[in-house]
Amino acid sequence: MPNSESTLQDPSHTAASAQPASLPRLGMPAPLFEAVTTHGKIRLDDYHGGWVVLFSHPADFTPVCTTEFMAFAAIAPELRQRNVELLGLSIDSPTSHIAWVRNIKEKFGIDIPFPIIADLNKEIATLYGMIMPGESKTETSRCVFVIDPVGIVRAMIYYPLTTGRNTAEIIRLIDALQTTDKHHVATPANWKTGEKVIVPPPATMEEVDARLEAGFECTDWYFCKKAV
């Protein structure tokens, strides 16, 4: 089939019917796009220099999504303090997004301050693998992509249609990633800002000796923490 062949030969092709060459991977550049949003046309690289939380929801005017949007709106100021912008997406029209945002304001008194991508042709949803056919072929699942200031995918979260996300976890994740970048450390399970962080395990004997003299809080040579 000539059309299929030409699609496969063109790595930039991202039409809804095509499979992307590769879904986003941690540590790899986030796929670039230009999108129609409730705030006008936006390109992903318009966010260069800041962090982006790109997240999808199944559909406008649905109850779980409405609770999520109000929760995302509530954390938007905290995220902006961290140089993070929110960018929503669903397979709905700009008109539907605008009507829903106005409805949330009218019924709940909450402003939605971030743009929402109208991905009617599923182009970006397909590019990012946001559609889980086992759940729905017409809606995006609850996906979150954390993209750093140089456009690298740093974290991905996937929730099913039935389960609203925990926005406190998204803030915790951002704090952990930014702490990692700033101090070159890792963060333990359930870590929160202010708690001790993990010193990356040593790769050489020389590093083992050095860390034992460095004053870290070590349980064993491979398990050391420090305050930052």
């Binding site: 006008g40 390109r43 318009d46 743009p115």
Partner: peptide
Amino acid sequence: LPLFRVRGGLRE
């Protein structure tokens, strides 16, 4: 205004 919005707006 947020920088992303300015970049997109100026481009348009």
